[in-house]
Design a protein around this nucleic acid. Structure first.
Lengths: 263, 263
DNA sequence: ATGTCTTTGTGAACGTGTGCACAAAGATGG
DNA sequence: CCATCTTTGTGCACACGTTCACAAAGACAT
């Protein structure tokens, strides 16, 4: 998860649980939909259903933001949209840079949703000279050499890393060095950052593996005879067997995976 | 440590904590890297550092899988790679279909990492007739009409949804109807599925918003006077609201968003 | 063998998150 | 103004996850 938020004397009784913060965007999305349909108020029950959570949880979440509901009526949609937006910091403009304009980077750049929520793609950066100047999503790709200048000139504090795993840490270091304090990492690597810098990762491979785990469990409710590997065999004999079975990846495994998905 | 194991430790086959499952892919990645460097054994301390977790947590996680370490030495890398792979169900082949071949869908299809971990792209599906037959990542896109046949013919149990939000639920229903029991959802919508079907979501927008929250907190250590919206806005028309609310349909939730990222 | 040294596996304390259930707040109607 | 009805806000109990700290297991040297 994000880096420890450890000590924070709650400057203003502010102590919103991380789990709650993670759900606020969910509520915001549901509320925005209601707002577009001009629905004036909504009850915790209805909103909870729309967001896919428990209504008690939703009420408790909102209670951390203050008491914005009216008993017997519910919550004012517009007002709640505003409060959550403000709490999440979406009432201001967040310039973002995307580093690594491969398949995924390009897909992200093409996403129009950035602007709609206060995020603005300030620049696209790639290390490949062949990409430089080439427009992606209407924005010309800039060379990695200019990374620091771009970050500083635009006051960028959020960076998105969509490079191969091998380049991620280096890019991360440069971003942080230039002033970025929040990073969204799509590369299949663990990033090391100084204190005060937040990192969140989006890892398709991990998600698939988790699904496979549950899938296997569902399928193996009955046929459960263990097959395959010997036993907690001698710590040496096992090695060979495992080595043989796992190699399916011809080239570097994690070392330098393509730009899109980890492994 | 080379004794008893053929039994069915109900404790283990049924009780690996979700949080542990979510970390197994992380360990697996770190272990694979070690394996490639031919490192024979690794201590919990070293591996924990490589995976970015606490060593006690790692040991406890492994303890759910069984006792695969050797005190005073550490864990056998190859053996652990095998055990985790097996636990995650990666020793078998998982055919996967990707529905919605827009920017993101194409990026996912181009990712080579699927194959390296037991996942295989069985088919690409898109509703746009103009896409049909067009090869993406070497695989010809098939029309959505064939979805059910494709899923059944290939024994697909994992589906990836990369469509616009408006189409996600419908696609989901069809996938589930055809036999898919695990879904990875990239569309910015809450999917409703029957019992027994797992859904995991990857939502870029949410991640960015969470980062913005922390970013704002970091920046706003001082200046924090609220300025926009008035106060608990008018809450009239409550009755009318309640009435209108009743049709909080389960249908078109989020109108429709671009293929890549939610909002 | 015996002792020393390293590292695992885990009991227990602690912290965080979840959900129930209900009193209190406020709207609405007579 | 009082009764009734709806829905919030929250105290409480419980489940889950994390971390500490240490006894026991085993390797290794003598």
């Amino acid at each position: 998860m994000a880096t420890g938020r450890t000590h924070r004397p709650a400057t203003r009784s502010r102590g919103i649980p991380e789990a709650t913060v993670a759900r606020l965007p969910l509520y915001l999305r549901a509320l925005t939909a209601l707002s577009e349909r001009s629905v004036p108020t909504v009850s915790s029950e209805e909103l909870a259903a729309a967001a896919g959570v428990n209504s008690a949880k939703l009420r408790k979440d909102f209670s951390y933001l203050g008491s914005y509901g009216t008993r017997g009526v519910g919550y004012d949609v517009e007002y709640l949209v505003y409060q959550i937006s403000r709490e999440l910091g979406l009432t201001q403009d967040w310039p973002v840079v995307i580093v690594g304009i491969g398949n995924l980077g390009a897909a992200l750049a093409n996403y129009g949703g950035f602007a709609s929520r206060g995020f603005r793609v300030a620049a696209l950066i790639d290390a490949d000279p062949a990409m430089t100047g080439k427009p992606v999503a209407g924005i010309p790709v800039q060379h990695a050499d200019a990374l620091e200048d771009i970050v500083r000139d635009n006051g960028v504090s959020i960076g998105v890393i969509a490079t191969p795993a091998g380049a991620a840490q280096q890019v991360c270091d440069r971003l942080v060095g230039a002033g970025v304090t929040s990073i969204l990492n799509f590369a299949p690597t663990m990033l090391t950052v100084p204190d005060g810098v937040d990192v969140r990762k989006v890892d398709l491979s991990i998600e698939l593996q988790i699904l496979a785990f549950h899938e296997q469990r569902k399928a193996g409710e009955d046929a459960a005879a263990d097959s395959g590997m010997p036993a907690p065999a001698a710590v040496k004999g096992a090695a060979a067997a495992a080595a043989a079975m796992d190699e399916a990846d011809p080239k570097g495994t994690d070392g330098e995976a393509p730009a899109v998905m980890p492994a």
